[in-house]
């Protein structure tokens, strides 16, 4: 028996909008610790990892570990029928092959039940080791989204370089080139507007902008984004989900030959 009640239902709506462009079908894993997902995009170039901890739910009942295969587009279609202020409850009975999404309006005068068939998805679960990163950039998520969007109008790939000057985003294409440098800036009114750069050593990596633009679909989830870079590893783009967990995107770099 599974029953997860999320008062801030809009979070789940945003989480689905943040993943459905990258991943079509995925397994949601439910355990005592929380509701999670790990899935690669179809080309195995990117990976998304979601964690919503059980403490973040108003009510969290998960009698035994459960994995539910869902088509994220279909799930998103159903969640879009929930109001932004609705309470969303995810329910599944043992042994059934469907999941129910229940939407309750804030004053309980409207209750909706959407039932969706589950799928069998044999997804490989990857082991992601905790790593030391050569550079970690924390910046406003809207700023990062703007940079990725602007640069993708000039080129297909972006070189992200972190030096003591700051973090530089560079691209080149048929019409020309573009360089954007963001410097560390802690003297801001609100902490979420700060750009903070922790650099152990300079690092520079090249990534496909198409994937980074998919990742920025998570911008509504958090005011800030953290970008962790290391020359031997995929970049990690993380959006914290307030009081609940996170959505992390991993992207393999392009390798110069």
């Amino acid at each position: 028996m599974l029953e997860l009640r999320l008062v801030q239902g809009s979070l789940l709506k945003k989480v689905l909008d943040a993943m459905r462009e990258l991943v079509n079908d995925a397994n949601f894993d439910c355990s005592a610790t929380g509701f999670s997902l790990q899935a690669m995009d179809s080309s195995h170039v990117a990976l998304v990892a979601l964690l919503l901890r059980s403490e973040g739910f108003e009510h969290y009942r998960c009698d035994r570990n459960l994995s539910m295969g869902m088509n994220l587009n279909n799930m998103s279609k159903m969640l879009r029928c929930a109001g932004n202020d609705d309470i969303i409850t995810i329910k599944a009975d043992d042994g059934t092959d469907s999941v129910t999404f229940m939407f309750e309006s804030p004053n309980q005068d409207k209750i909706a039940d959407f039932e969706m068939k589950l799928m069998d998805i044999d997804s490989e679960h990857l082991g992601i080791p905790d790593a030391e990163y050569q550079a970690i950039v924390r910046m406003p998520s809207s700023e990062f989204a703007r940079i990725c969007k602007d640069l993708s109008s000039i080129g297909d790939t972006v070189v992200i370089s972190v030096t003591k000057e700051g973090v530089k985003f560079s691209t080149a294409g048929d019409i020309g080139t573009a360089n954007i440098v963001c410097r560390q800036n802690k003297t801001v009114d609100k902490p979420e507007e700060a750009t903070i750069i922790e650099m152990q050593e300079p690092v520079s990596l090249t990534f496909a902008l198409r994937y980074l633009n998919s990742f920025t679909k998570a911008t509504p989830l958090s005011d800030t984004v953290t970008i962790s870079l290391s020359s031997e590893l995929p970049v990690v783009v993380e959006y914290k989900i307030a009081e609940m967990g996170y959505i992390r995107y991993y992207l393999a770099p392009k390798i110069e030959e």
Partner: peptide
């Protein structure tokens, strides 16, 4: 020329 890396060459199956 640059080639696109793949997840599986960084993270093995757990």
């Amino acid at each position: 020329r640059s080639s696109q890396g793949r997840m599986l060459s960084y993270f093995g199956n757990s």
